[in-house]
């Protein structure tokens, strides 16, 4: 599981608390936003749809697409798996470690069946976007209404 390493004592603790308060203050209103890191589920996901596809998005800064494993189990489960590595420190001292590292895996149920063979993923600016085409039978069919 992913953990956030924190400085143990003193002024850093104070600052981390301040940080958390700032985070809370700036959480977007109206959308329930859980803690971004050091939470039970990582990465947090957003899910939306249009007529033909479901879209799943995750912020995964510092990852590469080839380090991520994405698969669809059956027709309605999506798994995202990977490991985020900490930069190597050859010399010097850490002053602050707020970012989280480690292995993560998450499987979510999709609201509609998808075509597993047609799933595509894009990774840009640290944001993973997965496009999952819906199965034909669940796509809405437009009924043409003819003027009488």
């Amino acid at each position: 599981m992913l953990t956030t390493r924190r400085q143990p004592m003193g002024i850093w603790q104070e600052m981390n608390r301040w940080q958390e308060e700032m985070d809370r203050l700036f959480d977007r209103w109206g959308v329930p936003v859980p803690r971004r890191f050091a939470q039970a589920v990582y990465p947090p996901l957003n899910l939306w749809e249009d007529d033909n596809c479901l879209y799943v998005e995750a912020e995964l800064p510092g990852m590469e697409l080839e380090d991520l494993e994405i698969f669809v189990n059956g027709e309605n489960q999506l798994t995202i798996k990977g490991e985020r590595k900490q930069p190597e420190l050859e010399e010097g001292t850490w002053h602050r470690q707020e970012r989280a590292y480690g292995s993560f895996q998450r499987t979510v149920e999709l609201p509609q069946p998808v075509e597993p063979d047609k799933v595509t993923a894009e990774f840009k600016l640290g944001i993973l976007t997965i496009t999952l085409p819906k199965k034909e039978e669940v796509r809405p069919h437009r009924i043409e209404v003819k003027a009488g």
Binding site: Q19, M22, D23, F26, D27, R28, W29, R36, F37, E59, L60, P61, G62, P87, L89, E91, G92, T93, W94, H95, R96, Q97, E98, R99, A100, L125, G126, I127
Partner: peptide
């Protein structure tokens, strides 16, 4: 859409400070 505080790691060597920040998007 609100403003977020990005998380940072900071380390110091004899010659420099190095900051890593998560700023996806």
């Amino acid at each position: 859409g609100g403003t977020y505080v990005p998380r940072f790691d900071i380390y110091e060597t004899d010659s420099e400070l190095v900051l890593f920040g998560d700023m996806p998007g």
